[in-house]
């Protein structure tokens, strides 16, 4: 028994060493980013790496706001992300309720239309979609980005999978109690679907916040651009201002970090329950 204990203990130690090594691989780029954001450009590449700068240069975080219209980019991105996430959650869970719990004419055909387009990547139809938006006068508007992101088939599919796991008896009981379908959706289904709503929030928020190709195609006026486009523009214009680039990058990561950390406890559960795993 004693031998076995030593053996398991050795295994444990190895396990932790491996995990810590992996965590370092994942984290080092972020730590390096943070460290470089407090340095002068000429100090960024000094070797051996000075992880904690002796004279942290806070100025980088001040200068970046005047170097590019960063505030404008942030406001644009926050606006787009909030609207898209809200619309996506609302319309998807609304439609998914009908697909999962109601019986109506044409249900299978309608759902097939959703399923069929899940298999078609956006990149396949981005060209005709752009031409269509342009003919509707939506090119170079934020509305185009909203329309593009807010009505994905994926959201409906995911929510439907989750709702199907909720017993129909619950809805039946509510109907007998005199609730109408809208009340059932609002008072019973929504409170129960926190895990999958959180998962969908993370996905939608992150996708919209980080989206690059969509805004790249649609937004041409500088004052309408998003943070990602602005950041990229800054990098290509001032490629050697490493400290400033890193400061801007750190700023662009903060909102995603907050959303992710506050919702992540639902995440594994949500992925499992929504059948994203297949």
């Amino acid at each position: 028994m004693k031998i076995k204990n030593t053996k398991t203990r050795v295994m444990r130690v190895i396990l932790y060493v491996v995990l810590i090594a992996l965590a370092l691989v994942m984290l080092v780029p972020f730590v390096w980013m943070l460290s470089a954001s407090f340095k002068l450009d000429k100090d960024v590449f000094i070797f051996p790496i000075e992880w904690i700068p002796k004279n942290p240069r806070w100025r980088n975080y001040v200068d970046i706001w005047s170097k590019i219209p960063l505030m404008k980019f942030v406001v644009n991105t926050v606006k787009l992300t909030l609207i898209v996430t809200f619309l996506q959650l609302l319309t998807s869970s609304f439609a998914a309720y009908a697909f999962a719990k109601l019986d109506f004419k044409g249900k299978d055909t309608l759902f097939l239309a959703y399923i069929a387009t899940i298999a078609v990547p956006w990149q396949v139809y981005m060209v005709p979609q752009f031409m269509m938006m342009r003919s509707m006068g939506l090119a170079d508007t934020h509305l185009a980005i909203i329309c593009l992101q807010a009505f994905s088939a994926f959201g409906v599919f995911m929510m439907k999978q989750f709702y199907e796991g909720i017993p129909s008896e619950l809805c039946e009981a509510a109907r007998i109690d005199g609730m109408n379908e809208y009340q059932i959706w609002y008072q019973i289904m929504l409170p129960l679907s926190k895990p999958s709503l959180s998962t969908l929030t993370i996905f939608t928020f992150v996708n919209t916040w980080n989206d690059f190709l969509g805004p790249l195609i649609y937004l041409t006026t500088e004052s309408k651009k998003t943070l990602q486009l602005g950041l990229r523009m800054f990098i290509s214009q001032f490629g050697s201002e490493y400290g400033l680039i890193m400061a801007a990058s750190v700023l662009s990561l903060i909102p995603v970090l907050i959303v992710f950390l506050s919702l992540q406890k639902y995440f594994v559960e949500g992925v499992a329950a929504s059948g994203v795993k297949g």
Partner: peptide
């Protein structure tokens, strides 16, 4: 009709901005 009212908000956006362009592609 109740069921369609649930689906409609998403479906209009989906049909115009996804389904249409897919066929057009």
């Amino acid at each position: 009709m109740v069921a369609y009212s649930f689906i409609l908000p998403n479906f209009i956006g989906f049909a115009v901005f996804t389904l249409g362009p897919v066929i057009f592609a």
